[in-house]
Write a protein that binds this DNA or RNA. Structure first.
Lengths: 297, 297
DNA sequence: TTCATCGTTTTGTCCTAGACAAATATGAGA
DNA sequence: TCTCATATTTGTCTAGGACAAAACGATGAA
């Protein structure tokens, strides 16, 4: 068991920073400056990846690379703790009960706790008031290094399983018909499932393609199934600018009669292209459905 | 809605071919040779993307780029129809009933058909004799261009939902305890779910991490949950050589007391490192569990 | 024959470094 | 204070060279 070293492909995969960008940062700012193997190829350490993740997170939060690379590593940590918008309390504290179960590896305990909460709140409130914010908190906890990625995986699997189970009792639904999926670079499927539950509770008919559908196939699928709406989910970690570009493209390829909706924790910062609607917060999905029904009465 | 043109990022996203590779093919083989915008940046047409996808499928099937770029576009289509290995009857024909439902976009029809078959066969036989071979056939049909990727997505989602639902009635189980997941480059989760069902039917306790868990996290999760076995799934499209390397690494990182099992349609061609077991075919999973129980009686 | 081994060819990924568009910050003027 | 124009920062594209890894194919042994 030796100290693991990672090549640039692995770093791209684990940080979401493109190879081009990693090389450019090295050229421009001098960090990271990974060791090289005997062929001159970059070999990154786990610590470098850790710091890159931190920097990425801070950039997502609105800081600029120039400042971040200039200041010393220690002070970066503290920046993360600052709330994004003033008066916004840390989301993590409220959920420490569930997070502790995760940290202890108590899977059945976690499952029981979720199940119990679902019973208490009912499906809609459970999704809106527990599952959605808890998922954000779990993501946040991972970002801050409080839990490991496999613990996030366990959480995700348990919740998916629970939701699928609950959804099975909701039968075939009416209009509008929605096509749900994510773009190819967005692999988080949990938000999609949450959206599916909410839309089904509003009586819509949902066709889910799962994650990572190529844009041209979304267009084709929408036409084939004659859907009224294409709904996409974006997680917090998805780059907002990328999202805007892809939405614009997709909007261009599809007839205007098919609406394009987006949702998920990562949608707030996305600048919406014309003809794209956002469904956020408690009333988001219900509102979108209601609007659609009024317009198509 | 104008004639769509795609930049290299969009092509990478929709074909799965890296920018580097797209540029290299252009340099080396002269295809694709996209138009350029006023700044010299590549602009691909939908037709070029279509052909690139075809070429990608053929390469995945075992053809070599050199040959493919040499032969004319028309003859490429016909290559897809050929069976991968001689004397192997096309698996697709046997499953045309389901495939037709997919092609017609009849989702509820598909769901009913699967449900009905599950009722008729029982869970174990359904997984072994329907779900597993049908999934291979669906993959094959996509490779041959008979269905589009979004239709494969629909199939996958319906089957997952059905299986999760069925699994919910199987409660907490006994030993051994298995950790199920895939390596970071393997995103196919259907095989994992099939394995989970089979192992649970044998009375094992399954902890699923979903897909794409970093190797070091697999190690950590295995230790944390005190599992007896780590089970990984590989799809047919996974490069066997890569699989062998990762298995060897993983075997090195983990204590010998934890067994390492692999399964899935893509395992046949993998050269097994020492200390790794393969569970293939009808009796595979049952056999592995039984062996383990004998050794740990 | 069949199988393994070793050199050769093909193929994909990494490298450097220049250019420039898009995003953001800054400052001038209303 | 706000708006617009200009400057700076930042990310992504470009080209072509290099070379590792994979696949092929020929040669020799069982």
């Amino acid at each position: 068991m030796h100290t693991p070293r990672f090549n640039i492909t692995a770093v791209e995969r684990d940080t979401g920073l493109s190879k081009d960008l990693l090389r450019m940062w090295e050229r421009r700012y001098g960090f990271p400056s990974p060791q090289r193997d005997q062929h001159g190829e970059r070999l990154y350490t786990a610590a470098e990846i850790e710091r890159l993740r931190l920097i990425k997170r801070l950039i997502d939060k609105g800081f600029r690379p120039g400042k971040l690379f200039a200041s010393d590593p220690e002070s970066l940590e503290s920046l993360l703790a600052e709330p994004t918008t003033p008066q916004m309390p840390s989301v993590i504290e409220d959920w420490n009960g569930y997070l502790d179960l995760l940290r202890q590896g108590d899977i059945s305990g976690l499952r029981d706790a979720l199940q119990q909460q679902l019973m208490r709140q009912g499906l809609q409130s459970f999704v809106l008031d527990t599952a959605a914010p808890l998922s954000v908190a779990v993501g946040e906890a991972w970002m801050q290094g409080q839990i490991r990625i496999h613990e996030e995986h366990v959480y995700s699997e348990q919740l998916k399983s629970l939701l699928r189970q609950s959804m099975a009792v909701l039968g075939e639904r009416g209009r509008p018909t929605l096509l749900l999926t994510t773009v190819p670079d967005e692999e988080h499927g949990l938000g999609l499932l949450l959206a599916e539950v909410l839309f089904m509770l509003e009586g819509a008919r949902c066709i889910s393609l799962g994650t990572r559908t190529p844009l041209l196939d979304i267009v084709d699928a929408a036409a084939r199934h004659g859907v009224d709406v294409v709904a996409l989910s974006f997680s917090t970690s998805f780059p907002p600018r990328q999202a805007a570009i892809q939405l614009k493209e997709l909007r261009d390829y599809m007839p205007a009669s098919i609406e394009l909706w987006i949702g998920g924790a990562g949608t707030e910062r996305i600048v919406l292209p014309p003809g794209v609607k956002r469904g956020m917060g408690r009333q988001g999905p219900a509102q979108l459905i209601e609007e659609w029904r009024i317009n198509h009465a």
